[in-house]
Amino acid sequence: MKIVIAGGHGKIALRLTRLLAERGDSVVGIVRDPRHVDDIERAGGEAVVLDLEHATVDEVAATLVDADAAVFSAGSGNNATSARRDTMDRAAVVLVMDAAEQAGVRRFLHVSSINVGCADDRDIGDGYAVYLRAKRAAEQHIFARDKLDWTVLRPGVLTDGNGDGTVELTAGNRVGPTRARFDQVTREDVAAVLVALIDRPDTAGRVYVVVGGETPIEKAIDV
């Protein structure tokens, strides 16, 4: 398969690239910074330099030609302004979906956040709330797409520890939990869940929450 990852230099994305490349898939990582090309290639992928905050639909669609799936794993970063939260965490998602539709790529996976349903909670902090509102808006755009076989994955608090191939994966609703959760999950296990979701077209149209747990990933997908 050919998989295109928006935000190819992210910590989840690099792990996903490695896992896919190790099993023989072709992986294209979209990155903004030319200095990140080598990291993509070391992980086994091919890099395309493209700034999703300024790219056109045609430019993104060109990277998606003949792809079997697109994964959106880009992010605005911890210290982003409110404006950049919107351009990266919402508008760029819409851009990649538009490009996928133009290129004829139906499968679309989006890495969101466990707490999207808490964006209006006054206790979570202004910066986090802005991030969650952008993520929530992106999800609303996704849910309205009937030309894409989308799946939304909402990870818990991300850590860099070694994954063990087991998680707690639950089916979520489109609103999301209204009480904030801070359960942890390794980026390695999130990447492995994405691989499993790519392989399971029957997960299209579903929302999943993933945190650390004891169920093997392949079995957890059957929730």
Score class of each variant (00 low, 15 high):
63 T>Y: 03
158 L>Y: 07
172 G>P: 03
21 A>N: 10
217 I>H: 05
190 V>K: 02
170 T>V: 12
153 L>Y: 10
198 I>A: 09
131 Y>V: 00
133 R>F: 02
151 T>I: 03
209 V>Q: 15
171 A>Y: 09
181 R>P: 06
28 V>Y: 04
52 L>M: 11
167 V>Y: 11
51 D>P: 05
198 I>T: 11
215 T>V: 14
106 R>H: 15
141 H>M: 10
179 R>C: 03
129 A>Q: 13
133 R>A: 01
138 A>K: 14
149 D>H: 13
223 V>K: 05
215 T>S: 10
61 A>N: 11
216 P>K: 11
73 S>C: 12
34 P>S: 13
135 K>N: 00
189 D>V: 02
15 R>M: 11
4 V>E: 04
45 G>F: 08
215 T>Y: 05
26 S>G: 12
94 V>P: 02
155 P>F: 00
105 V>C: 00
61 A>D: 08
140 Q>R: 09
107 R>I: 04
73 S>K: 03
66 D>G: 01
154 R>Y: 07
49 V>F: 08
53 E>G: 13
128 Y>K: 05
189 D>Q: 06
213 G>A: 08
149 D>M: 07
83 A>H: 12
124 I>P: 01
165 G>F: 10
144 A>S: 15
204 A>M: 10
132 L>M: 07
33 D>Y: 03
183 D>P: 03
31 V>M: 03
154 R>V: 04
31 V>Q: 01
53 E>Y: 03
112 S>A: 07
196 A>I: 08
50 L>Y: 06
205 G>V: 09
114 I>Y: 12
146 D>K: 10
25 D>A: 15
23 R>C: 06
10 G>M: 07
211 V>G: 07
29 G>F: 01
44 G>V: 05
37 V>K: 12
11 K>S: 07
60 V>N: 00
221 I>C: 14
97 M>S: 11
219 K>N: 15
137 A>Y: 09
145 R>N: 10
156 G>P: 04
109 L>F: 06
121 D>W: 05
36 H>Q: 14
213 G>H: 09
217 I>Q: 04
102 Q>L: 14
98 D>S: 11
26 S>E: 14
120 D>S: 15
199 D>C: 06
198 I>C: 11
79 N>C: 04
172 G>Y: 05
4 V>K: 01
52 L>I: 02
74 A>W: 03
133 R>P: 01
215 T>Q: 15
76 S>I: 03
165 G>N: 09
58 D>L: 06
76 S>G: 11
19 L>W: 05
171 A>E: 15
172 G>A: 14
148 L>R: 07
25 D>Q: 09
110 H>E: 13
10 G>R: 03
29 G>E: 05
58 D>Y: 08
209 V>I: 12
19 L>G: 00
1 M>F: 13
206 R>H: 15
33 D>S: 09
222 D>K: 05
122 R>N: 15
21 A>M: 13
7 G>P: 12
18 R>W: 06
110 H>L: 15
120 D>T: 11
7 G>C: 08
71 V>A: 09
49 V>L: 12
93 V>K: 00
133 R>G: 01
39 D>V: 11
206 R>D: 12
